[in-house]
């Protein structure tokens, strides 16, 4: 890990407008949790449904998208990635450093708030908060790695990532049962299920399979991202 790159990436990602969007979403989640707790009678099931729908299905993919592409996208866009690539730092190290920043942001702005929201809404019953917190963490890491790779591999990473996160995972996943095995959401849900215990939420993927796939995807995308960075062609033109 290269501390300079970490610092630079952190500054770029968290400076400016991006951080407002990220913070706003976390705050939104927490405010909702508080309001629901105050004005509604929540069962652990309600909490689980809410966190599943809002946090795991929507918030996490979008967050992973924003921070994963935000970690390297702007630098590629305006060409300043050249300065980093010209230094004697291995491509893999660059990827790891940027991934660290992205993951930290995803944890801070998505996973932790999810855990907090769960705790606010359901207390400690059925380990819902812990389950979804860990599930969100796992999802955050995986989505960040995936979108970081996409940002390097294609110039339209954001769009490709969106189609995956929203269309594939929700639409296709709902209609084609087999496709659910390939959904990051389901893997995260599987981890959550393992922690909350059965009955609260159910995933279509077994824990063992989920863990294996998660490790494979994170490791694979990180490695491949390094490879793609090696052959990155900067277009001053489209």
């Amino acid at each position: 890990m290269n501390s300079t790159i970490i610092r630079m990436t952190a500054r770029a990602m968290l400076g400016g407008r991006r951080i407002y969007l990220l913070a706003a979403l976390s705050v939104l989640l927490l405010v909702l949790a508080v309001l629901l707790r105050l004005f509604a009678d929540l069962s652990p099931d309600d909490t689980a449904q809410f966190l599943h729908g809002v946090s795991l299905s929507t918030l996490l993919p979008l967050f992973g998208l924003i921070v994963g592409t935000g970690a390297i996208g702007p630098e590629i866009d305006d060409g300043s990635i050249v300065y980093i690539l010209a230094k004697p730092i291995s491509r893999a190290e660059i990827v790891r450093s940027k991934l660290l920043v992205a993951v930290t942001a995803a944890i801070a702005f998505a996973a932790a708030p999810t855990f907090l929201a769960g705790a606010i809404m359901a207390g400690t019953s059925a380990n819902v908060a812990l389950g979804f917190g860990v599930g969100a963490l796992v999802a955050g890491v995986t989505y960040s790695a995936l979108f970081l790779l996409l940002a390097i591999a294609t110039r339209h990473a954001v769009i490709v990532g969106l189609v995956y996160a929203l269309a594939w995972e929700s639409l296709v996943g709902s209609f084609v049962p087999g496709a659910r095995t390939l959904s990051i959401q389901q893997w995260a849900l599987s981890v959550t299920e393992a922690i909350t215990g059965p009955g609260v939420i159910s995933s279509d993927v077994s824990l063992g399979a989920a863990l294996v796939l998660l490790v494979l995807v994170v490791g694979g995308t990180t490695w491949y991202a390094g490879e793609r960075l090696r052959v990155l062609t900067l277009a001053g033109d489209d």
Partner: peptide
């Protein structure tokens, strides 16, 4: 910055719907 605009629009539209649906459900 086009990429950020894309992310922001989708986030706003999708998140708002997701949140409202979730709340309405509960």
């Amino acid at each position: 910055r086009r990429g950020f605009g894309v992310a922001a629009i989708i986030t706003v539209l999708v998140m708002s719907y997701s949140v409202v649906s979730g709340l309405q459900g509960i």
